Simulated assay, not measured.
Amino acid sequence: MILEAVMLQVKQGMEEEYEEVFQEASKIISSMPGYIVHELQRCMEVKGKYLLLVKWETLADHTIGFRQSKEYQEWKKQLHHFYDPFPTVEHFENVPL
């Protein structure tokens, strides 16, 4: 399992609309092969800042399966115009303790 982590900055004044659209767009990502679960967190200190966490079975499920799909094009269409600057996506793996 891998964890995709994305820090998102939503344009000022668009936060409420973003949250509504994100809820609808969540149906897209949750339908993808290899998807496990996701959550969107709102920053308490910085208005418009969000943290998106998505768990995938494999890195390829995200980078190839989702990112190269027609569903991703719809995800982009619905969400990407809200971001400034455009977010950086990072992937993490669990460290056994």
Rank of each mutant, 00 (worst) to 15 (best):
M1Q: 03
A5G: 15
A5N: 15
M7R: 08
M7N: 12
L8H: 07
Q9M: 11
Q12P: 04
Q12N: 13
G13S: 09
E15P: 03
E15M: 10
E16I: 06
E16N: 15
E16Y: 01
F22W: 14
Q23I: 10
Q23H: 14
Q23Y: 10
E24I: 09
K27S: 10
M32W: 06
M32E: 04
P33S: 09
G34T: 10
Y35V: 00
E39F: 09
E39D: 08
L40K: 00
L40Y: 00
Q41G: 11
R42Q: 06
R42W: 06
C43R: 10
M44Q: 12
V46E: 12
L52C: 02
L53T: 07
L53H: 13
V54P: 05
W56M: 00
E57Y: 05
T58A: 08
L59P: 00
D61W: 00
H62S: 04
T63H: 11
I64N: 09
Q68L: 11
Y72D: 04
E74Y: 10
W75N: 02
Q78P: 00
Q78V: 14
Q78N: 06
Y83G: 10
P85S: 13
F86W: 13
V89P: 03
V89E: 11
E90R: 15
E90T: 15
H91E: 01
F92W: 15
V95A: 02
P96M: 04
P96K: 14
